[in-house]
Design a protein around this nucleic acid. Sequence first.
DNA 1: CAATTTTGTGCCACCGATGGCAAAAAGCTA
DNA 2: TAGCTTTTTGCCATCGGTGGCACAAAATTG
Lengths: 344, 344
Amino acid sequence: MQKQATINDVARIAGVSKRTVSRVINGSLSVGETTRTRVEKVISELKYSPNTQARGLASSRSYLLGLIYDNPDALYLDDVQRGVLEVCSNLGYELVVHPCRYRSETLVQDCLRFMQRSKLDGVIVLPPVSESETLALALKDSGSAYVRLSSVALDEAKHIVVSDDRAAAAEMARYFAQLGHEHIAFISGPQRYKSSTERMEGFQLGLSAYGIKLRPDWIIEGNNTFETGIECARQLLQVETRPTAIFANNDQMAAGVLKVAHSLGIKVPEQLSVAGFDDNMLASRVIPALTTIKRPVRQMALLATSKLIMSIENNDKAATNVAAKVAPTLVVRESTARVPGNSN
Amino acid sequence: MQKQATINDVARIAGVSKRTVSRVINGSLSVGETTRTRVEKVISELKYSPNTQARGLASSRSYLLGLIYDNPDALYLDDVQRGVLEVCSNLGYELVVHPCRYRSETLVQDCLRFMQRSKLDGVIVLPPVSESETLALALKDSGSAYVRLSSVALDEAKHIVVSDDRAAAAEMARYFAQLGHEHIAFISGPQRYKSSTERMEGFQLGLSAYGIKLRPDWIIEGNNTFETGIECARQLLQVETRPTAIFANNDQMAAGVLKVAHSLGIKVPEQLSVAGFDDNMLASRVIPALTTIKRPVRQMALLATSKLIMSIENNDKAATNVAAKVAPTLVVRESTARVPGNSN
DNA sequence: CAATTTTGTGCCACCGATGGCAAAAAGCTA
DNA sequence: TAGCTTTTTGCCATCGGTGGCACAAAATTG
């Protein structure tokens, strides 16, 4: 391995002191124009790049961000990671990942240890872990920089990026109503998650604008897995009168609905419309392709990272000003259609 | 944030010198039994944990591992990350991720910079990046510890964990043959990837044991995406005589085949058997659920990490001895069946 | 043109560990 | 008990940077 140049080498060759080189690297203002360019030239000639550990030790920063997540079907994990790194790498940060269990008793402890051990400069917390107020509080208390991704604005603007799931669900409701559906069922996610209640309320709100009300027994709670999607769908479809449309809290469960419909010989979308949420890879690949809501995951990651780095670099104001809300969009595919015999 | 205890605090309270505390932490042998326990007691009382940056600076180690990957549909990314961290965290390592572009011209440069900047102790390289010999060479030259995941044993045992895709594909061939299929098509992955050729050759080899030979025009090259799966399937199915079975190089493309079959009114598995490879989440969710090959991703991650850490800690022999090969297994679901009218 | 302010630059202590070396303590031998 | 190993332990330089402070040079002012 070719020996790495140090700041001393740069200083010596450029004929200045270490301190000055350090100033150039960190963009301190008080460096003369000529000195600066001279130093920069040497730096690039030597391909010098500062030793992160030494730098961290001296300045108590690590240039490391953390990603805390617990996603059973982390389909968008890669999207998030790429998004985060897109912002990171220009600014000299790297990303350390930390999968965990939301429901674990030691979650908070575990995450704090993680941050401390690696001396992370800040963390990005994905849903559903992001909904843990105890974690958020612990992070705040420990003075750590953090940004949460969620469906609800449950924190100050500088700490959060929200996807407006409520509005998106309302849009789905509108779409359903316009297709003429009146007998609509909803398969919700676990009610302990904000994202679930947001989507449900948004959907109900949207429907009510058209005078449609969800029958209480047509609201069934799943836990966002394919398997519970199947269970819930069975309850809804293996009965005398069934809904003409089902909106599931996510694509996984919607896929479960398709499975059940198929096995019962119910044609989608002719006899039953089905829609999901997330637009994960599954959505476009199942048959029929799912109508769903697309969350701008990448964009959320970009925004979150920008915010995070700004607050790390003591620019809270800028962090607050970065957009904190993104709008998911309706993606219509093949799994939804007009109610048969209803031509309004 | 509660101020972190330093090694000096521990030393002072335990009434020994820094050096001794350091010895205890690093498991150096020459520490008296009594001193050791006393120090350990203080350490746990203070909840002391060494500052990684300082440690790294002094010992030129970072306790950071890297994960280099480029996976268009990184469905197993989470599996890998969890697997790696399962081993890591007990041993005090963390994981830094680095998505990249395999085909990028600057791949090698980019990865080396990544390692250098973060002073990583070692990296795990996922396919297809793992197939880059120039990268492997560069890593070796730079004296970095690394382990590659691949379908072929393209490196010394201590540097690789292979999944025997060839054997698995052969097993699929056997399964097809036993179902009575003779008119079989294969949708391959890009021929520049070893995994593609391995699977193809394994499949052909397996078939030849039953005296079956693939028609050259029934071997079509896709690029592992759903979309090319669709294209390839069209070529195979929109013709007079079509195969009775199609084996695709991965589940994404197999899903594409299902889509086309459905749109052409070809019943799967009654009129056409379809199988994929990977057993990603898609496989069990599409209709009909895909017969496929399951790769023990988690296990590969565990093995790779063990190897990596062993070689980092200068135990090459142990690293070599960790198992280097895992066997994917056939998972039969609904998309394959006996050839109609063939009862052998 | 001297006095004063405003840059620009250098010196050096410090961040929190490790590791070489020497000294002290303990264990053995004679 | 003196003399010699063998453990244990402590001192201190070191890793590669940062940041405070002092000082020199340049710019501004009276």
